[in-house]
Design a protein around this nucleic acid. Structure first.
Lengths: 125, 125
DNA sequence: CGGAATCCTAACTGATACTG
DNA sequence: CAGTATCAGTTAGGATTCCG
């Protein structure tokens, strides 16, 4: 596996801006769902996450968990039983993200209807 | 009343969750940069945005602006002079996003160094 | 059970050329 | 100036198969 490193030649404006990089992390299609699921339920097995986040493929779930683990947001615990058992859990750092998740949720619940109306009007023309 | 008219195929968990859809909007590679730029500078011409957000292709900038316009976050004003002049500006709805942008920024500035450390350690193994 | 490796297609993206 | 249209390269993602 290779690490994708940015060329970072241009982007003086924001390529390395912390908030942009945060969006790269939690803006991922599945990452936010994993974080919220773990935030609500606490420690979960791989198969529980898979069942909870319906529609995610095994490849994407694994990839997402690896990324979150790499970023220190999620911890992975292997119990070498037979068959093997793997649990995932938010780290303290991961749990600190639940705050902005709440802010996102609040803005979304308050304003997404307006977005929907804007879209409907835009599409009508 | 709350009747769910979902096709209910997969995604029972969150495909239509407002916060997920919000992330689809602002999590886009360029959308957040456009929003922040317009938030900082106010009304900007196409060419100003293009210069400010270095590295964005004209295709992506146009596409991003169209999406933001469709979502009602950005307004587009054409002045039919010669040559034509086009200005972009955050709508009130778009400006209301600056709040969560600030929350994102705050979390990022506070915690991204931890993410960086976690990554460095993960990659070392 | 919890993956890794492979293959393959659809979507995204950038470069280029052209236009009102 | 502010785009649109087109094409080619890259990548993301799903399906499948196999393994400790």
């Amino acid at each position: 596996m290779e690490v994708t490193e940015r060329p970072a030649r241009f982007d003086a404006f924001a390529a390395d801006c912390p908030s942009r990089r945060l969006l790269d992390t939690i803006g991922d299609k599945w990452a936010s769902l994993v974080i919220v699921a773990l935030g609500l339920t606490g420690r979960m097995r791989y198969s529980e996450l898979s069942a909870r986040i319906a529609g995610v493929s095994q490849k994407m779930l694994t990839q997402t968990l690896r990324h979150l683990e790499r970023d220190g947001l999620v911890s992975r615990t292997v119990t070498p039983s037979v068959p093997v058992r793997v649990d995932y859990e938010l780290t303290p750092l991961g749990r600190s993200l639940l705050g902005i998740m709440r802010h996102l949720k609040e803005w979304a619940e308050e304003h997404m209807p307006e977005v929907d109306r804007a879209r409907a009007e835009y599409d009508r023309r």
